[in-house]
Every structure is written in structure tokens, then in C-alpha cells.
Design a protein around this nucleic acid. Sequence first.
DNA 1: CTTGTATTTCGATGTATGTCTAATTAGATG
DNA 2: CATCTAATTAGACATACATCGAAATACAAG
Lengths: 188, 188
Amino acid sequence: MSEPLLDFFKAMADESRLGIIGLLTARERSVQELARALDLKEPTVSHHLAILKAQGLVTARAEGTTRWHALDRDALERLARSVLKPIGETKKAESFDAKVLKSFVADDGALKSIPASRKKRTIVLRWLMRDFVGGRRYREAEVNEAIQRHHWDSATLRRELVGHRMLARKDRVYWRLPESEWQDGGKA
Amino acid sequence: MSEPLLDFFKAMADESRLGIIGLLTARERSVQELARALDLKEPTVSHHLAILKAQGLVTARAEGTTRWHALDRDALERLARSVLKPIGETKKAESFDAKVLKSFVADDGALKSIPASRKKRTIVLRWLMRDFVGGRRYREAEVNEAIQRHHWDSATLRRELVGHRMLARKDRVYWRLPESEWQDGGKA
DNA sequence: CTTGTATTTCGATGTATGTCTAATTAGATG
DNA sequence: CATCTAATTAGACATACATCGAAATACAAG
């Protein structure tokens, strides 16, 4: 029932623990040293070290009665990277969008052709939606005009926009739907 | 008096906020949507969004009375990278140590020569200290023996170890000092 | 201007947890 | 075994903050 990402952030979200990590960056330290440096009592430091150890961020070796605590840099980096990975993936998806648009849209904004693959067509349709703001009504003629600034076949594209639930239609009047309604294969 | 790194971790260290970020990964969302998906009331979601906005992780655009909140992937990545950077630096220092040892120590453990530069000599001295455990006393003859397994000039190296406060000496008896005492140019 | 809806602000409440002192454990020393 | 020191554990306390209901705000639509 533990959420590893959450536990990692919780472990890092404390000023004292960040201080401990900072001190351990230079070299290993005893509990006493840490307590003195951070102006805390030994039990408090002990408590924080237990949390960091539970996350595998800190290891300890005993030497007589004192314990020398060291930072596990590899573990810290592994965890930090696991945070970055999902971000990198969505950014990669974004850059795919950019690539598709670059290949189908001319510099002057003309749509060179309508992509045959559904995935790429969706990306182009999202891009067309930039011309429609939420909360406004558009007559059919207005919709056609806006689309024709990019492509002659406004009828087809208009129907696609409605089919993807990006634009809604009633009595030849259209309006923008919220992105959360769009059927673009977005997950969740 | 704000600590940016701490504030970032605090912003991420909450289950509800991680959930919000997860949902915003797919597409922008309204407060209502988020509240329903996470089983929270709107005021609570609003509160969390304020915290995420303060960190620049989330942006909002208004559409009528509803506000569509979106994830700022670039900001998130920038922050995550600023976390990784200091780790990478200390790891680089570690790999420098490894490089120095590889060039001065033969495969059989023999020290080929004593580095002239203070920085590299310190690294080699730290490596020699692996043979001395804390809490034990060593007669001078024992220290010499241990060193001579790596290099013939035990007198020089022994004095260097004492000079760097890695070994302490009293009446021809030596013992290992805690790493925190070592004078190796380590910061803090 | 009034009504209705989405959101935010305010104030109260309960829980999680950072910190401390006191007591306990563990290891070294004699 | 008695003593000393370093660390941990236990328990108490205080504060931070996540959450909620109620009230206020913002905006659209009659």
C-alpha cells in the first residue's frame, strides 16, 4: 500500500533531512556531528536518519559505539531519475506532435494535406482548434472561413472536428467543447 | 527566506497533488473534474492547485466561469533537473577518485608512486586507510607493515597519514581517526 | 438586476509528524 | 561487573497543513 514516489518526496520534503543530505554529500558523519551542525538533538537526527534509510538514501557502518552514516549517491540518483522519466515521456509525445505539424503544415499556415492516419489527423485537428475560443458561438459559414484559411476542404475537416467532439453543433451553430471532452485517444 | 528546493519537494509530497499532476499529464482539467476524479471537494482541489501554481508547475486559462488547468512540463522538468545536478557533480568527483587510483595503483595493489599533487596524494592516502579499522591500536611496526604491502617508503606515507589527521599517534602507538577529522580539503 | 454555476476565500477541525526529554540499548573500558 | 559514551526507542507536545462546510466572488444568461 506504499506509493514509492510519494514516500520519496515525503522523505525529501523536510528542511532537517535536506540538511543531513547536504552534510553527507561531503563525507560520512556521526549522529552527534549532524546534531551539532543542524542544531538538533540526537534523537531527532536519529529519527530523520531512519526515514532516509527506509528510502535507501543513507547507509550506516558501525565503529565502536558510533555509527558513521553515508549518502548512497546511486540510490539518490536512481530515485531522482525515476521522477524524471515520466516527464521525459510526455515531452517526447509533445515533440512527436511538433514533428507531425512540421511535415503537414507549411510555413504560411497552409495545411498541405489531411493526414490519412487517425493519430496524425488528430494532431492536425487539435492544431486547427486554435482558431476557436471557448464560450463563443460560430455560424457554419464562420467555421468554414476559419478552416479555409488553412485548407480548401472545410466540409470534411468541419465534420472531423465535430466527430472528434472538439466542436459541438446544433442548428448550424458551432461552439468549442472543453478539451476534456475531445476524443483524441488521450489516456485517463 | 524561501528555500526553492525544499518548497519544490513539499509541493510534490502530497498524495492529492501527485494525483492532480498525474491527471494533468493527459490533458487540461477543470477543478470539478479533478475533485470528482480524486474524490475531494472543490475547495480542497483549489487549495492544492494554488500550491502547484506557486511553484510554476501548473498554469490556468479561463473559459467562461470554468478554469482549465494544465501542467507546465518544462517547469517540472527544469525543477527535477535542478535536483539531479548536485548529485551528478558529487558522482563526477567520485569517478575522478577512481581514475586517480587506477593510474597510481597496480592491479596487485602496489602503489606505483606517491602522487606529487596534494589533491591526488590525499586520494591515495584515503585508499591506504582501508587497512586500518577504527577503535584498534597499532604499533608503529604494524603500521609500517601494512603500508609496505603497497609501497616501500612506509616512513613517508606514515607521516603523511598523521599529517592529514587520518591516523593519530601517541608514544609510537597509532589509531584511526574518524573521517570527519580528516584534513582532505573536503568542504563543510 | 436576478438567477445559476464554477471557483475561490475564510474559518474551523482533525491528523500527521517534527522535536524534545527521559529511559533503554549496545559497545568499549577497566 | 560497574561505568562511560553513542545511539536508539518511547512517549509527550506543538505545529503544520490537508480537508471540509459556509460564505464570497466571478462570470454567463435571461
